[in-house]
Amino acid sequence: MIGSKGERLLEARALGLWYRGEEGRGRRVFQGIDLDIERGEFVAVLGPSGCGKTSLLKTLGGFISPSTGRVLFQGRRLNGPCPEAVMVFQEFDQLFPWKRVWSNVVFPIKVGGDVHRREAMEGRAENILAELGLTDYLRYFPHQLSGGMKQRAALARALVSGASLLLMDEPFGSLDAQRREEMQRLLLRMWEEHGFSAIFVTHDIGEAISLADRILVMVPDGEEWGGGYRLHELPVKLSRPRSSVDAGFLELYQEIYSYLSTASPESGRTR
């Protein structure tokens, strides 16, 4: 089992997912996944493209119901998406094009019940927007923003919602290298300040090492590829801030790299 002590936020047991294919033969995406996420923990999920990282993340968030097993969130069984676990996508079209940045960001407050706390929450939203450097862009429509700014706004929306878990699906995957690093630093700062938990999906080994407490590598399960994936855990025992030229960083990078290349579908059989 992957996971540890501390207060448990999310718990997945025997999680499996497959899609029904033609002639009754399904495609297995992943199987037998047991996973615990602690409150305040930052976990990265690493794997080659097309291995089902997004499906795993969406299953953990309740967007897809698993074929086997169950997900417990804050001790309760997850039957669908909930505002406590918010997804941030890679694509830039996750903001409502017809709402200005401000309306997009306070959207969770607007639609989520509690009228009395709205004012206090809007104050909080202003702070978050300032921390993310968006204060000057509140009146802009999404199409007037750069990709990096759009992702900041999406992150701001997730934070404003007060979610305790952020499910991030390669949120910086469409940004150039410089923006990506900038966003990583920003994300870590927000994480340290706001204390949410994060499951961060990426195919970039360096990104996973710089961000996460633990890295879960998706590896093919069984003798033949096509049998679905399972998770292999690697803790990251490096102090923050992490530098990509640090010896420990490079060592871990090498380890994961060789692990991924022996386990990749191109290599045919695993190990």
Partner: peptide, 23 residues
């Protein structure tokens, strides 16, 4: 309408009238 916007509205538990109005 992009799938992500549907996902977002599911994520924040939009009710039917909110889904119509905002999405």
């Amino acid at each position: 309408i992009p799938q992500h916007l549907y996902d977002v509205s599911r994520n924040f538990n939009l009710r039917l009238h909110q889904r119509l109005l905002h999405l």
